[in-house]
């Protein structure tokens, strides 16, 4: 009984119930849904978002967030492709693309932590700057004809079934979850997001941590860009457009708050899973693809409203809490 009570209080548990419900409904609604091919497509489509979401949840726990991840993904993909076409070795091309992600993260983090510009404006401008640069570098064209060795990174199937990006996502997911749960370094973010002043009084170097978080988010977004480009076999300057919204929505669904202080990697993954399931469901049920964005927006605002009402000081809710308090 106590365990059940504890479980229902966890956002992860609630979202798992929703995921299960969608699963059950879908297995009846669509004959293709439970087929391995469909489930693999679902996982593959989720893998890139999962990698970004791990960075994003870490950042959001500390009270920040990053609108530029989609642009970093697109930009780093294009950089990789250009360098490869210019004859750079695969390893070096990838390394440089990842460095670009780190630098963009450093830029975002510096502006937020040191210049004290709010994360929304900072990363919204980065979204525009780096998407713009992507178009400038490519004149809006896609870059194909990448070396076969590079494509192996994203297209190899293990056992002829599971594509590598799924494995990458899984590895990053597990490492991310372990670190955010157990590492004293990453736990600092919970203090910063929960009560920044108290974190400072406790001797946490808040600014340095915030910059690190943006760098990590930039790095993972760039990594996602490299993997995505490899999987597609070509770079598109539109890659990742609008993904920041999908990822942020997923992370909030998974229990992170825009105020910071809460969220887990597992929750973020379940959020991505739910978003992926919804997209998959819409596709399988033959809903027009143009409805997808509408659904993302609706899910986002629902998640935020639930989050806000759950913590708000408004009378309706404080009345309930007051009765629990002993006098």
């Amino acid at each position: 009984m106590n365990l059940l009570k504890k479980l229902t209080r966890q956002r992860e548990f609630l979202i798992l119930m929703v995921v299960t419900a969608v699963f059950i409904v879908m297995s009846f609604a669509s004959p293709i849904f439970l087929k391995p091919q469909n489930l693999l497509v679902l996982l593959l489509s989720m893998s890139i978002e999962t990698i970004i979401a791990v960075g994003m949840v870490n950042l959001m726990v500390s009270g920040g967030f990053d609108m530029s991840v989609g642009s970093i993904l697109g930009f780093s993909g294009v950089i990789t492709a250009i360098l490869l076409r210019a004859g750079f070795p695969i390893f070096l091309a990838i390394l440089l693309a990842l460095c670009v992600g780190v630098l963009i993260g450093l830029w975002n983090g510096f502006l937020v932590a040191k210049v004290k510009i709010n994360p929304f404006v900072t990363t919204l401008s980065s979204l525009s700057i780096f998407r713009g640069l992507t178009f400038v570098l490519t004149s809006g064209r896609n870059i194909a004809g990448l070396p076969a060795g590079f494509k192996l990174i994203g297209q190899t199937r293990i056992g002829g079934m599971v594509q590598l990006p799924i494995i990458y996502a899984l590895v990053i997911l597990v490492i991310g979850d372990i670190l955010m749960r157990n590492s004293s370094f990453f736990r600092q973010n919970y203090y910063i997001g929960g009560n920044e002043k108290a974190a400072k009084l406790s001797g946490i170097n808040v600014d340095r941590m915030i910059i690190f978080n943006y760098i990590l988010t930039g790095f993972l977004a760039a990594l996602a860009g490299v993997i995505f480009t490899s999987r597609m076999g070509s770079s598109s300057c539109q890659a990742g457009t609008g993904w920041e919204l999908r990822v942020i929505t997923a992370v909030i669904l998974g229990g992170a708050s825009l105020r910071g202080g809460s969220g887990t990697v597992l929750g973020a993954f379940l959020g991505v899973l739910l978003m992926g399931l919804i997209s998959n469901m819409l596709t399988l049920l033959g809903v027009d693809v143009y409805w997808q964005q509408f659904v993302v927006g609706t899910v986002l605002i629902s998640a935020v409203v639930i989050d806000t009402l759950g913590r708000s000081e408004n009378i309706l809710f404080s009345r309930i809490r007051r009765t629990n308090k002993e006098y």
């Binding site: 004293s184 736990r187 600092q188 919970y190 203090y191 929960g194 009560n195 002043k197 108290a198 974190a199 009084l201 406790s202 001797g203 946490i204 202080g261 809460s262």
Partner: peptide, 18 residues
């Protein structure tokens, strides 16, 4: 109060000194 509501009692007490 300088506590973080989303963390456990133990984590709040041993902040940065776990």
């Amino acid at each position: 109060l300088s506590l973080v509501p989303n963390l456990s009692i133990a984590e709040n007490i041993f902040v940065n000194r776990q």
